[in-house]
C-alpha cells in the first residue's frame, strides 16, 4: 500500500467526515439543548436524500443547490414537530422519548420504502465522476463540494449561536432551562427553533450526500448510529467537537476500509467510540471530567 494512496484516502476521509460532522451537528444541537434523543436522525437524512433525488429527477436541480430549500423545509418540519408532538415529551423519561422517536423513525423509513422501493436511486450528475489531481493526490470533486457546503452551513450555525440574541437565548436554555424560563425566555419557542435548526442541518447534509451515496431506505439506521457516535466522541453539547469528531470518524472509516474491507468500516467508528467512552467519557471536547 503506497503512501500516496493512503494520503488520498485520508483526504477523502476528511472530506466525508465534514458531511458526517454537519449531520452530527444537527443531532448535537437537539440532544444538547432540547435534551431529546432524536433516534430518527438518520431517517431524516435519508428523507432529505430522496427529496434531493426527486428535485434532481423532476427539475434537474443540482443537489448542492437543493440543499438550501430542503434545509428550509426541514427547519419548518422540525419547528412544527417540536411544537405539536415532542414538546410534551421533553419532561418525560428517556425511554419514552426513545420509543416516540423510534416510532417516528419506523414511519419515515417505511414511508420511503413504500414510495421508492428497496433499491437504491441514482442521481447522475454531469460531474459525478470528476476528480482532481493535487500533486500526487486524487480528490473527488463531489466530496470537495459536499465538504465545503457542510463547512459553510456549520459555520453559519456557529455564528448564529455566538452572534445573535436568539442564539444566545438558546444557549442559555441549554445551560439552565429553569433560569432561562425565570428571566422570561419562551423556552417552548426556543426548543422548537432548536429542533428546526437541528433538522435543517441534517436536511442540508442529506441533500448534499445524494451526490455521493445513492439514497436507499436501509441506509437510515446506520446513519443514526453514525451521527450518535460522532456526537458522543466529540462531546455532548460541543459543536466544534461534533465537526472534529466527524472528521476523525471519517478518516478512521476510510482507512479501515482500505486496510481491512469496506464492510468493516463501521467497526472502526465503534472502536473509536469504545475507546473514547473508556478513556474520556465526556467526549473529546466535552466539559468537565
Amino acid at each position: 500500500m503506497s503512501l500516496t494512496l493512503s494520503a488520498s484516502v485520508i483526504v477523502q476521509g476528511v472530506l466525508t467526515g465534514l458531511v458526517y460532522g454537519l449531520m452530527a451537528l444537527g443531532l448535537s444541537v437537539i440532544f444538547g439543548i432540547v435534551r431529546v434523543v432524536n433516534f430518527a436522525h438518520g431517517e431524516f437524512a435519508v428523507l432529505a436524500m430522496y427529496i434531493a433525488y426527486l428535485l434532481f429527477f423532476w427539475l434537474k436541480l443540482d443537489p448542492f443547490l437543493a440543499a438550501l430549500p430542503i434545509a428550509a423545509l426541514f427547519f419548518g418540519v422540525g419547528y412544527l414537530l417540536q411544537r405539536a408532538l415532542i414538546n410534551s415529551f421533553v419532561a418525560r423519561a428517556e425511554h419514552d422519548q426513545f420509543i416516540l422517536m423510534v416510532g417516528l423513525a419506523i414511519v419515515l423509513v417505511n414511508g420511503c420504502l413504500m414510495i421508492f422501493g428497496p433499491e437504491a436511486r441514482h442521481a447522475e450528475l454531469s460531474y459525478s465522476l470528476d476528480s482532481w489531481l493535487a500533486g500526487p493526490l486524487i480528490i473527488d470533486a463531489v466530496r470537495v463540494y459536499a465538504a465545503i457546503g457542510s463547512l459553510v452551513v456549520a459555520l453559519m450555525l456557529l455564528a448564529f449561536f455566538r452572534l445573535t440574541d436568539t442564539g444566545t437565548a438558546i444557549r442559555a436554555c441549554a445551560d439552565n432551562r429553569l433560569a432561562a424560563a425565570i428571566v422570561g425566555l419562551d423556552t417552548r419557542r426556543l426548543y422548537a427553533l432548536t429542533f428546526g435548526l437541528g433538522l435543517a442541518c441534517v436536511g442540508a447534509a442529506g441533500a448534499m450526500q445524494t451526490a455521493i451515496i445513492d439514497p436507499n431506505p436501509s441506509l437510515a439506521p446506520g446513519m443514526t448510529l453514525l451521527a450518535f457516535t460522532v456526537v458522543i466522541v466529540g462531546g455532548l453539547g460541543s459543536l466544534i467537537g461534533a465537526l472534529f469528531a466527524g472528521i476523525l470518524i471519517g478518516v478512521a472509516e476510510a482507512l479501515s476500509s482500505l486496510v481491512m474491507a469496506p464492510s468493516m468500516k463501521s467497526l472502526a467508528s465503534f472502536a473509536v467510540l469504545v475507546l473514547v467512552l473508556v478513556l474520556r467519557p465526556q467526549g473529546l471536547f466535552g466539559k468537565g471530567g
Partner: peptide, 21 residues
C-alpha cells in the same frame, strides 16, 4: 406491500406512548 404494515406499527407505537405514559 413492503413497509406498509411497519409504517402503521410505527404510527401506533407513537400513539400508544403518547397516550399511556
Amino acid at each position: 406491500v413492503p413497509g406498509a404494515s411497519l409504517l402503521a406499527y410505527g404510527a401506533l407505537l407513537m400513539v400508544i406512548i403518547s397516550t399511556n405514559a
